[in-house]
């Protein structure tokens, strides 16, 4: 038991910390629903979202983000699971070297590769395409993903695998119909992290994309300011639209977000 004074102090500190964490987000939400026109009556105005969506072109930006994020999550999940399965359940020559090579990908920051990547892809006329956003992010995500899935496949029960094999299931069947369905929580956590990383990525699209129609949501937001200097509410509405998908997802699946960040980094 702790004393009454300490209990109260604990609550005071926690409430203060929570207020600090929420204030900037609340501020932007409050700005977003303010009527923009000077002299307009107070109250809540949801029109800013519609204006940001159409005239601010956030509809287009969000569409780009959805396309890129969906492709990255699906591809990275598939490739990481396959590679993790090989590392976790099979013995083969060079497995240690290859695994450390992939681990290197966890450590190299995207700053180091984004510039040469731009010139490589420009040489192939692939800059300014979704491809230039999707594959580099798949590569970065699968470094973590392989690591994560390897840990899952290693911990998966030997007996289950052997029973399935006795029933005549091949490697691919064991992988696809037995282990992967059993590992749904681990796979979901990984997908949640891929989703968040890809959706929030800024530097890569900044370097690769000049065509306004292909801008992702964070990129559109960063350039929005320059065009509409007077529209603070519009900017805030745009910011809310950019943050909303991940935040809503977080509210429903926060276990996965927190588990992924905690376990993913502790194992790393």
């Amino acid at each position: 038991m702790t004393g009454r004074l300490e209990r109260s102090l604990t609550y005071v500190v926690l409430v203060a910390a929570a207020a600090f964490a929420l204030y900037p987000l609340g501020l932007i939400l409050a700005t977003a629903v303010q009527p923009d026109a000077i002299g307009a009556a107070g109250g809540i105005d949801l029109g800013n979202f519609a204006t940001a969506w159409r005239e601010g072109r956030f509809g287009t930006y969000l569409r780009s983000s959805v396309i890129v994020t969906a492709c990255v999550v699906v591809l990275a999940t598939l490739l990481s699971s396959l590679a993790g399965y090989a590392f976790g359940t099979m013995r083969f020559r060079g497995s240690t070297v290859l695994f450390y090579l992939l681990l290197l990908g966890l450590m190299v920051p995207s700053e180091a590769i984004v510039v040469p990547l731009y010139y490589d892809l420009r040489g192939l006329d692939l800059d300014n395409t979704y491809v230039s956003l999707i594959f580099p992010q798949v590569a970065q995500s699968l470094a973590f993903g392989t690591f994560w899935m390897r840990a899952y496949f290693r911990s998966s029960s030997r007996e289950v695998v052997e029973a399935a094999r006795l029933d005549g299931a091949g490697h691919l069947r064991v992988f696809w119909s037995v282990l992967l369905p059993m590992g749904r929580p681990a796979v979901l956590t990984m997908m949640v992290l891929f989703f968040m990383w890809t959706w929030n990525e800024f530097l890569l699209p900044l370097v690769m994309i000049t065509d306004e129609g292909l801008r992702t949501a964070p990129l559109g937001l960063a350039f929005f300011k320059g065009q509409y200097t007077s529209g603070t509410s519009l900017l805030a509405a745009g910011a809310v639209l950019v943050a909303l998908p991940v935040v809503v997802f977080y509210l429903f699946a926060q276990r996965h977000f927190i588990r992924g960040m905690v376990e993913g980094s502790v194992k790393g």
Binding site: L25, M196, F202, P218, V247, Q254
Partner: peptide, 16 residues
């Protein structure tokens, strides 16, 4: 609530 800032895009954080 305290973990929430981790999941918001940094561009949005910067605007706020």
């Amino acid at each position: 609530v305290l973990f929430l800032p981790q999941v918001v895009a940094l561009t949005v954080v910067a605007v706020a």
